[in-house]
Design a protein around this nucleic acid. Structure first.
Length: 486
RNA sequence: GCGGGUGUAGCUCAAUGGCAGAGCUCCAGCCUUCCAAGCUGGUGGUGAGGGUUCGAUUCCCUUCACCCGCUCCA
């Protein structure tokens, strides 16, 4: 039942209830930036926490997981947003993100300056860009897709640095550190959650395309001979993760890239996509990409940036015949203690957008349904059906009415639960209204203290989705919520 | 970056070149023993800057943001 999923309604709810605000709103807003409010920060934290918990902390590294090619380890790091500028030259981002661009005032086309030779002009008859009489090209303009900043208070152009456009490189350049400082053996996944920055040309579609965003990335290092199996494992594992948290409708799909979409060195790349309500019918937006990256990244940081068009991969050379971008010169290969084999690991990269996952979870959770009012008449109800583990508020505690000792008992339950869960206490107004407010916030359970509670020490716990109430002992509330929320 | 549209209270919408209104929400109180709109009272607004004018929320210019379509999306 998603026919009622309407983006305007969802955006409005996000603002009204404090999930997402426009950044700098009192100053008129800032294009491409969004803030999370009191409910949003909890939801997004829960998404990130679930990811870290499921992928890293709770990972069973002693047994072969279902569908996995073998046992493997998982750990994490937290690297800086600003890193050595050479990293982005070797990663390839510098070349791709610092292009000069030329706009045509006549045909409204936008072209990379270095691509103009050979690029046809959209005007007819077709000629090269700039060759038409009508062509009116602007001067080449810097098109900095990476955010540039300056190191040091007196910084000059030589001190230019960049805000990372992805967290992945922080993992690659720490691969040797992690191996050397721990006893992990391959296969090993290193996870990182953090902010990344890209000067998107057209920020649009709510938080989907933002200039500051948060990624949840794993770089999974393995033996080259096993990399294809691990690629398939991670692709399916990550798809299942979204489904496990309720993004299970036909709006979610796994799209394997066609061979001509793949980098030369990649065995496979798949996108996990979601049909966001702001997209046209049949269109999907990327939540996560799972890429087989071969040894491109580690070797680029060893030898210098590799030329993606070569096979086998070779260092990309500049006009002087020397490496265009010099690598670190450090040996990032891995020696297997058991076989004594030395090799440069291949990498599988599941790279997820935390904001996009959060947005998809909000969209998927959004429902309008009917619930009876006090006269038994059916009334429209807006409800966010979050997975209990992701819900910002786990439970709300109400006294049925604000008298006869009910508030006192409810407050006691509230404080007991608050030590472990984000819970909410409300004693104001009609209880029905309080239920509806929690439905809109996506709170899965409401605990109500009523007249009977005072007699026998029981309370009711109401389910957000079924509206059914169950009577439990007040003393059991913590355990019941723990069991339900997990 | 281009074209079109839209900006009035937290939300949905009125109105006017001359004191900016309503419903809902929210807050305080009353009432209330299980699913939002019963009573009383209250808070709160013309995206920003400039211009025309005696006076601008209204007319004009600029700007910002959002939506739609292009462009872009490593």
């Amino acid at each position: 039942m998603h026919h009622d999923m309407d983006m305007e309604q969802i955006v409005s709810l996000c603002k009204r209830r404090g999930f997402v605000f426009q950044s700098s709103e009192i100053y008129g807003g800032l294009n491409g930036f969004w803030d999370y409010g009191p409910l949003g920060v909890e939801l997004k934290r829960n998404v990130k926490h679930a990811w870290w918990q499921d992928m890293v902390l709770a990972h069973d590294d002693l047994n072969v997981l279902p569908s996995a090619p073998g046992v493997y380890s998982m750990t994490g790091i937290d690297s800086t947003i600003i890193m050595h500028p050479q990293i982005w030259k070797c990663s390839g981002h510098y070349d791709l993100f610092i292009d000069k661009m030329v706009d045509c005032r006549e045909c409204k086309g936008r072209f990379r300056e270095d691509h103009i030779p050979g690029t046809p002009c959209p005007l007819k008859p077709s000629k090269q860009v700039g060759q038409h009489d009508k062509c009116s090209l602007t001067e080449p303009r810097d098109f900095n897709l990476m955010f540039k900043t300056t190191l040091g208070a007196l910084g000059t152009e030589e001190d230019a640095a960049f805000l990372r456009p992805e967290t992945a490189q922080g993992i690659f350049v720490n691969f040797k550190n992690v191996i050397d400082s721990t006893r992990y053996r391959l296969p090993l996944g290193i996870a990182q959650i953090g902010k990344s920055f890209r000067n998107e040309i057209t920020p649009r579609n709510f938080t989907f395309r933002s200039r500051e965003f948060e990624q949840m990335e794993i770089e999974f290092f393995c033996h080259p001979n096993e990399s294809a199996d691990w690629y398939r494992y991670w692709r399916d594992r990550r798809m299942k993760w979204y489904q496990d948290y309720g993004v299970g409708s036909e709006r979610l799909r796994l799209r394997e890239h066609a061979p001509d979409e793949l980098s030369h060195y990649s065995i496979g790349t798949a996108d996990i996509e979601y049909a966001f309500p702001f997209l046209s019918a049949g269109e999907y937006g990327e939540l996560e990409g799972i890429a087989h990256r071969g040894d491109f990244d580690l070797r680029s940081h060893m030898e210098g940036k590799l030329d993606e068009k070569t096979r086998p991969l070779q260092v990309q050379l500049g006009p002087d015949g020397k490496p265009k971008w010099r690598g670190s010169g450090k040996d990032l290969s891995y020696r297997d203690d058991l076989t004594n084999e030395k090799f440069v690991p291949h990498v599988i990269e599941p790279s997820a957008g935390a904001d996009r996952a959060t947005l998809a979870i909000i969209c998927e959770a959004y429902h309008e349904d009917e619930a009876p009012d006090e006269d038994g008449k059916s009334q429209k109800r807006t409800v966010l059906r979050f997975h209990p583990r992701l819900a910002p508020i786990k439970a709300a505690i109400f006294p049925l009415v604000k008298k006869d000792g009910m508030p006192e008992m409810a407050k006691e339950i509230y404080l007991a639960l608050k030590k472990q869960f984000n819970v909410f206490y409300d004693e104001k107004g009609a209880v029905g209204r309080r239920y509806r407010r929690q439905d809109e916030a996506g709170t899965p359970y409401c605990i109500t203290v009523d007249g009977q509670s005072l007699q026998d020490g029981t309370v009711t716990i109401r389910d957000r989705d079924t509206l059914q109430q169950e009577r439990i002992k007040a003393a059991d509330c913590l355990q019941v919520v723990r069991d339900k929320v997990g």
